[in-house]
């Protein structure tokens, strides 16, 4: 006899999706980029990744112990935060700064606002921006054993030529996880196939970014330049793994499009006219802050509803 014949209260059929399961998929999807980063930048990258993950998990555990809340480290979200943060750091960053960033991500950006689901911005990116503002020197120093010199984006900014093939594969200077476009795309395709993320946000993000860059980048429709801008910096990692964060992205269909376009325009704006070569992380956390407004303005009309009912306050 099937279980379906049992008399019980709903829900009768449960999906297998749990927070931990989705987080596990994200971790698996991030593996190609992480492994490539370790191969590319060496042991130092592995240490940074391990330190960030460990610090995130431990600080979540300790914080919940201190405030007498049930421990939520089993949902793996702290692991994802730690991993994403590490992938956003240059491999030469001093360990204590990585630890500080991880604690900031978990304790201040996530737990202080009520834990997973309540955080107002992506914890990993919040911490990255905290570190970027605090330690501008070490956070933008991409010299390591394997590479010396500037990132491809900085090179483009200075008008020098870049090898887009290398950028696609990822053998360039940069943060641990952002260099290899192919590794990131492999992970992203896995996430899309598993139904964890959908293409709306990354798609509109990338398309609107390309449009912006083509219009205002100063190189017109130069294929090499646009490819380099797409593959350079944290755009791919940000678009597929951080802009799609469930907590800090809109849930309304129209809102997702608005959010993606906003991201594209802001990233283009920061990269083209800003003081730094990179602007993905600032664009994403700024858009994170606008998500509640975007959602409020894009609530879809209920089925069968004819006219827009004016809302009375």
């Amino acid at each position: 006899m099937s279980d379906l014949y049992n008399v019980s209260s709903s829900p009768h059929v449960r999906a297998k999706d749990t927070t931990a399961r989705i987080m596990l998929y994200v971790i698996i999807a991030l593996l190609p980029a992480s492994v490539f980063g370790i191969w590319n930048f060496g042991l130092r990258a592995l240490i940074l990744i391990a330190v960030c993950i460990a610090t995130c998990v431990v600080s979540e555990w300790v914080f919940e112990l201190l405030i007498h809340k049930k421990s939520t480290i089993n949902d793996l979200s702290a692991v994802v935060t730690g991993l994403l943060l590490a992938l956003n750091l240059p491999s030469g960053l001093p360990i204590w700064q990585a630890v500080l960033g991880s604690v900031f991500a978990i304790v201040i950006v996530k737990m202080m606002f009520g834990g997973l689901g309540q955080n107002f911005m992506n914890p990993a990116l919040g911490a990255r921006c905290f570190l970027l503002v605090s330690f501008a020197g070490t956070m933008t120093n991409f010299n390591c054993d394997a590479y010396t010199g500037a990132t491809p984006l900085a090179l483009i900014r200075n008008g020098e030529s870049v090898d887009t093939m290398k950028m696609l594969i990822g053998t360039t200077a940069g943060t641990i996880g952002e260099t290899s476009t192919i590794a990131i795309l492999v992970g992203a395709i896995f996430l899309i196939l598993m139904g964890v993320i959908d293409l709306t946000i990354p798609g509109t993000y990338i398309v609107s970014f390309v449009v912006f860059i083509a219009l205002f980048g100063g190189h017109g429709l130069d294929g090499n330049y646009i490819t380099a801008q797409l593959c350079g910096g944290g755009l791919m990692l940000g678009a597929f793994f951080m802009a799609t964060d469930y907590v800090t992205s809109p849930i309304t269909p129209m809102g997702k499009v608005v959010y993606g376009i906003l991201l594209g325009i802001l990233t283009g704006l920061f990269r083209t006219f800003g003081a730094n070569a990179e602007g993905v992380s600032f664009a994403i956390i700024l858009s994170n802050l606008l998500v509640p407004i975007i959602e409020k303005l894009t609530i879809p009309k209920a089925f069968g509803q004819k006219k827009e009912v004016k809302q009375h306050e």
Binding site: L100, V133, S134, F135
Partner: peptide, 14 residues
């Protein structure tokens, strides 16, 4: 300690 963000405006809020 050189955590520059605390000299800037966000640090005041924190």
């Amino acid at each position: 300690l050189g955590i520059t963000v605390f000299v800037m405006a966000p640090g005041a809020f924190l």
